[in-house]
């Protein structure tokens, strides 16, 4: 067992974990943060995307011990829940119906937030390329792309 201390969704946590434990397992099984889902288990689908120190990673392809001393944000920590609001990207996915079954949505939203952080005003092509590591089996991506562009417009006022 290895001791880890990190910040997850704003809260300090510490635990003893097996080195082989994946970050996604740690989030789901130890912390109960089941908002982050396991899709493919091969690091292709992106459903498990979270932010590690502010950048998007596939949490099935990072060890929990590698998050020691670092900050993790999951879909559950994105919105300011105290206010009961959604994050603008979550709001945009709802507004544009950027989902059908919803399984890929946590990862899509987390990757979209990363993408817009780096490029607040993307073209449609840049959205499609920036989201290439996230697979959706329902929508054909159309409304997902619309959602990301809509979020950019809504928040772009600030940029």
């Amino acid at each position: 067992m290895t001791k880890i201390e990190l910040t997850v969704d704003g809260a300090a946590v510490s635990d003893d974990v097996e080195p082989r434990m994946l970050l996604v397992q740690y989030l789901r099984e130890k912390l109960g943060k089941t908002g982050t889902v396991i899709g493919c288990d091969t690091s292709n689908c992106g459903a498990c995307t979270v932010h590690l120190d502010g950048t998007s990673v596939k949490s099935c392809n990072v060890l929990a011990v590698q998050a020691n001393g670092r900050t993790v944000t999951t879909i559950e920590g994105l919105a300011d829940t105290a206010e009961g609001d959604l994050h603008p990207v979550q709001e945009a996915f709802r507004e544009c119906h950027g989902l059908q079954c919803g399984f890929c949505t946590p990862g899509m939203v987390m990757q979209a937030v990363d993408l817009l952080g780096e490029n607040p005003n993307p073209t449609e092509e840049e959205v499609r390329l920036g989201m290439e590591g996230n697979l959706c089996r329902c929508t054909g991506y159309h409304n997902i792309v619309k959602s990301v562009l809509h979020a950019a417009e809504q928040t772009g006022v600030k940029a």
Binding site: K58, N61, G133
Partner: peptide, 9 residues
């Protein structure tokens, strides 16, 4: 190379 998340790691 790969995709954005994988390029970050």
């Amino acid at each position: 190379v790969a995709d954005s998340q994988i390029r970050h790691r």
